[in-house]
């Protein structure tokens, strides 16, 4: 009984941790499937986290915050596309540069505008945050441990962005495999010459893909600062952009496996929090750092071909030039 509730709570925590990861990983999927390395996820998310919290604080509206976050994600995505697609710059360097720049820019602007030591004001007012939505009869269902508590704790009680992320997985899969846009997107990441000779603009497709990636990172960043917490703090993405990239690789650049990877990584995170300092029978205290490092170790093992294989899109990282 007690264990059961613990597990339900653990799973609910997993969903909360997985949400920004999933949004960023899907963002990475669109970018990388088009052939553009998604190293800028961290920066796009962090930038969006800053502007959404700022706008929500000033305007009092979480929705305006979301709009600002998405707009920021798109603006940074445009910058990336300008550097990598239009000017065929090094995609790894561009992503790293963006991450570093935004890591400084957020706190620098926050200090100048709010004078709170590099944070944005606490979001306390009504409507400034995306709060948990309670589904109908959740309170009643909670009294019935099984399956009622699954409903009340696991399905109900999350904020809107969590549900949005859940819907985005089938939507992305549909877009990628069932539409004209998806066909072209997958093609441009494999062989941009084929797309170009078919009369489709490689540049335009890649801009679209990177922009979608910016939108999704914008939502992910908004989640971090206006849903998961109440404001922007320095470095609040804490490597989630890179973890999302790892999840994307672990999910072999496919929507559903990527969802699985995000849930797995989020679960290890939730577990680490839960197991902090807990003396387990037989094993003793598992250092929390080891559990937190697990996703990275798993990804390295996958890349090394020890756990399955990960074949990236063939044209990834290669700027397209018309010459052969």
């Amino acid at each position: 009984m007690e264990t059961y509730t613990l597990i339900v709570l653990l799973l609910a925590a997993t969903i909360r941790v997985a949400t920004p990861l999933l949004l960023a990983a899907l963002a990475g999927m669109f970018s990388e499937r088009s052939g553009v390395i998604a190293l800028g996820l961290e920066g796009m998310m962090l930038g969006a986290a800053f502007t959404s919290a700022s706008v929500a604080a000033v305007s009092g509206s979480a929705w305006l915050g979301l709009g600002a976050g998405v707009a920021t994600g798109m603006a940074l995505a445009l910058l990336l596309a300008f550097a990598c697609v239009t000017h065929r710059g090094n995609q790894v360097v561009a992503g790293m540069a963006l991450n570093i720049m935004v890591a400084g820019l957020g706190p620098a602007l926050a200090l100048a505008w709010f004078d709170l030591g590099g944070q944005t004001p606490q979001l306390e007012g009504p409507g400034q945050r995306f709060l948990a939505l309670t589904w109908p009869w959740a309170a009643a269902a909670d009294k019935v441990p099984f399956p009622g508590r699954l409903y009340s704790q696991l399905l109900s009680g999350h904020n809107l962005i969590v549900y949005l992320a859940a819907v985005l997985v089938p939507l992305s899969a549909w877009l990628l495999y069932r539409t004209r846009f998806g066909l072209r997107l997958r093609a441009v990441g494999e062989n941009p010459s084929a797309v170009d000779t078919a009369g489709i603009s490689v540049t335009r497709l890649r801009y679209q893909a990177v922009l979608i990636s910016g939108v999704l990172c914008g939502v992910a960043g908004t989640y971090l600062s206006t849903a998961a917490s109440a404001g922007f703090v320095r470095d609040m993405t804490a490597g989630k952009g890179y973890l999302a990239l790892a999840a994307l690789i672990f999910g072999k650049w496919k929507p559903y496996p990527t969802l699985g990877a995000c849930l797995l990584f989020a679960f290890t995170d939730a577990l680490a929090t839960r197991l902090q300092g807990v003396d387990l029978p037989l094993v003793g205290v598992i250092p929390v750092q080891f559990i937190l490092a697990l996703p990275y170790v798993l990804t390295v093992l996958l890349l090394a071909g020890f756990v399955g294989t990960a074949v990236p899109p063939a044209a990834i990282g290669v700027p397209y030039a018309k010459e052969k």
Binding site: Y177, R178, T179, R180, F181, G182, L183, R184, R186, A187, E190, N191, S193, A194, V195, D196, T197, A198, G199, I200, A314, K324
Partner: peptide
């Protein structure tokens, strides 16, 4: 034009390669 180096997406089917660019609508089916 048939290029010396083929302009085909290797991991697509023949049909997918042929319709690329002339898909006939936003939905594939």
């Amino acid at each position: 034009m048939v290029h010396q180096h083929f302009m085909l997406v290797e991991n697509f089917t023949v049909l997918e390669n042929i319709v690329l660019g002339v898909e006939g609508g936003p939905r594939l089916a």
